[in-house]
Write a protein that binds this DNA or RNA. Structure first.
Lengths: 332, 332
DNA sequence: CTGTTAGCGCTTTCAT
DNA sequence: ATGAAAGCGCTAACAG
C-alpha cells in the first residue's frame, strides 16, 4: 500500500507538502496541489488513519459502549450516533459490556487503548465512582441512560421515575386499581427507577401496595412469561411491565392460557420498541426516545471535542411519554 | 497518559523489555517481570493500540460493514462476530453502507484506512468486480450473504434460491395453488434469488405463473402493507413475502381489513427474525442462520489471518429451513 | 536474558 | 509557499 513518501516522491515535493494538501490546512499553491493530487490518484494512496492519529494526537474516533450489539433497544443508539458522527468524518467504534462490571471495564479499557477522542457510555454495571474516574481522564465522556451525580453535564438520561409514574397513572385513570408489575432486574438503575415511579403513583392515589403483585424479571421475554404466570393468580386487572420484551412474554402467556388482552387483563410495556406496534393486541407502552438521546450525545461530543456545531440544541434529560395502542382496557 | 518509556524508566529496564513482558513473547526473568508489572500498575499504564499497530504492522482490528447498524436482521451478525473475536482479543469495528454503492465504498475505504487486518463485508450495492479488487489487496476478506464468482472460498452465503423454492413448496404442499409473492428490491442479489426460487417451485409443480401476483417491495413493513393491498384483489390464498418485515406489514394489512390469517390468506415470511414468534398469528417463515454465518465468518478470519483455531469447522454455504408456526393454513 | 537501534506513516514546528 | 527534521509510542531485529 502506498505511503505518503511514495506520493511525495512521485509528485516531486516533500512529505510535508503532501500532508498539507491532504489536510487542506496550510496554503499550498495551485500547481503543487495538482501535482500531489495526481500522484495520490495514480498510486491509489489512502492515508493511514493510525499513523495520522499517532502523529497528531487525535484519532478522530469516538468509542461507544452498549450492553449488547444485537439488541432492539440499543441498536438505535449506535445507528443514529454513527450516522451523525460519520457526517462529520468521525468514526464510531463500538464495544459491548454485557451488563457485567468486569466486561464493562474491559470494554472501556479497550476503547481507551484505541485512543478514542471521546466516549459514549451506556454503562449498566459499573459504579458511579468508576465513571467519575474515567471522566477525569483526558477523554470527553458522555453517559447515556443514567444520571450520575457530579457528572450532570455529561449525562443524557431518561426520567424513568416519571415514566413509571406516568404509565401507572394511565392505568389508574383507565379504572384499574389492582395493578401488577413485572420489574426489570433491580441491579439496573433504570429498572429501579421505573419501579419506584410505579410505587409512587400508587401512593399518590392511595392505592394499597401489595408486595405479591410485584415480581422481578430480567428484561427477557421468558421472564415476562414467567412473571405473568405468577401474577395471573393474584387477581390483577392490569400489568405494567418493566420493558417491552417482558410485555411480549406476558402477552404470549395470556394467549397460551386463554386470558384475553385487554379484556381480561391489560398489559403495558416500556421502551416502545419498533416491533411493539406489531404484537396482537398492539402494545401500549412508554416511548423511550433513544434515537434522540443518541443524537444529543453525539452532538455533545461534536461540540466539546471537535468544536463542531456549537449551537446545536442539546437535551440532557428526556421525559418518556405514553404511546397508546390496544393492550390496555380503558373501560375497566 | 503514561507511555512505555515512563514504565521502562520507573522499572529501570529498557523499553524493549517492557514490551516483551507485556506481550509475553520472549522469555523474561521472573524478577524483571515483576518490576515491570509493578511499574505498569503504579503508573496505570495502558499500551497504545495505535502505536502498537503501527510498529507491528498488525492492528488486531477486524472491520465489518453491514447495511445498517440498527437492524434486526444484521444485528446478530455484529453481535456474534464481536463476541467470538473479542474472545481472542481482536477488536471489531463496524461501519454501515446503507445499501448505496457510494456509501459502501466509503465505508470499505474507511475500514481499509483503519488498517484492519481483515474485513467482513455484507455488501449489497457494490459490484462483484469491486469486491474482487478489494480481495486482491493485502487484507483478508470474507463476504457474507453473497456468493461472488472467483471468491468462493471467501464467501459465507445462504442459498436463497433453495430457500425461496422450499418456502413455495411448503405452500404448495399445504394445498395452495394461487400464491402471491411480495419480493424484495430487485437490485439486491438475495431478493432476486428468493424470487427465482419461488418461480422455480411454481414451474416444478406446473402451476401457472401470473405476473400480477408478484409485486415488488423494498423490504420494509410499509411496502409489505402496500404489497398485500395490491395482492388482496388478486384472489390469492397464500402470500410469500421476501422477508419477515414485509410479512409483518402484510399481516397488519389483513388485520386492518378483516382478512383472517391464515383462514382467508396464508402468509409466510423469510429471515426468522427473533420477533417473528410474537406476531399474531405467529409467523411461519424461513430461518436465516445469520448467527451461525457470523461465527463461520469470524472463524474464517481467525484461521486465515491470525492462525487461531485452524480446526474449527466452517460452513460456507448455508441452507435455510422452514420454521413452522401459525400463519399458514395447511388444510387449504 | 536484556539493551540498542531502527523504523512504522504521518504531522508539525522551524527554517528558508 | 515549501522543505528538513524531529517526534508520536511502540515493536523487532541484532547484538551482546
Amino acid at each position: 500500500m502506498a505511503t505518503i513518501k511514495d506520493v511525495s516522491e512521485k509528485a516531486g515535493v516533500s512529505q510535508a507538502t503532501v500532508s498539507r494538501v491532504l489536510n487542506g490546512s496550510d496554503k499550498v499553491v495551485e500547481s503543487t496541489c495538482e501535482k500531489v493530487m495526481a500522484a495520490v490518484e495514480a498510486l491509489g494512496y489512502r492515508p493511514n488513519t493510525l499513523a495520522r492519529a499517532m502523529a497528531s494526537g487525535r484519532s478522530g474516533i469516538v468509542g461507544m459502549m452498549v450492553p449488547e450489539l444485537a439488541s432492539p433497544v440499543y441498536s438505535p443508539l449506535m445507528g443514529e450516533a454513527e450516522a451523525l458522527l460519520r457526517k462529520h468524518s468521525k468514526q464510531l467504534i463500538v464495544a459491548s459490556g454485557h451488563c457485567d462490571p468486569k466486561l464493562e471495564r474491559e470494554a472501556i479499557d479497550f476503547l481507551l487503548q484505541c485512543r478514542c477522542d471521546a466516549l459514549i457510555l451506556m454503562a449498566e454495571a459499573v459504579s458511579d465512582e468508576y465513571l467519575l474516574d474515567i471522566a477525569k481522564a483526558n477523554v470527553e465522556v458522555v453517559i447515556v441512560n443514567r444520571a450520575v451525580d457530579g457528572l450532570e453535564s455529561n449525562c443524557v438520561s431518561l426520567d424513568n421515575i416519571a415514566g413509571g409514574k406516568l404509565a401507572t397513572q394511565f392505568l389508574i385513570d383507565a379504572g384499574h386499581t389492582h395493578i401488577g408489575c413485572i420489574t426489570g432486574p433491580q441491579f439496573k438503575p433504570d429498572a429501579r427507577d421505573r419501579q419506584s415511579g410505579f410505587l409512587q403513583a400508587l401512593r399518590d392515589h392511595e392505592i394499597a401496595y401489595s408486595a405479591d403483585r410485584i415480581t422481578e424479571g430480567n428484561y427477557t421475554e421468558q421472564s415476562g412469561y414467567e412473571g405473568m404466570k405468577s401474577l395471573s393468580s393474584k387477581g390483577v386487572s392490569a400489568v405494567l411491565c418493566g420493558n417491552d420484551e417482558m410485555a411480549f412474554g406476558a402477552i404470549a402467556y395470556c394467549r397460551d392460557h386463554q386470558i384475553k388482552v385487554p379484556e381480561d387483563v391489560s398489559i403495558m410495556g416500556f421502551d416502545n420498541l419498533h416491533f411493539a406496534r406489531y404484537t396482537y393486541p398492539a402494545l401500549t407502552t412508554m416511548h423511550f426516545p433513544i434515537d434522540e438521546m443518541a443524537i444529543s450525545a453525539a452532538h455533545l461530543i461534536l461540540n466539546r471535542c471537535y468544536n463542531i456545531d456549537p449551537t446545536a440544541p442539546i437535551t440532557r434529560r428526556y421525559q418518556p411519554n405514553i404511546v397508546e395502542r390496544q393492550s390496555v382496557n380503558k373501560s375497566a
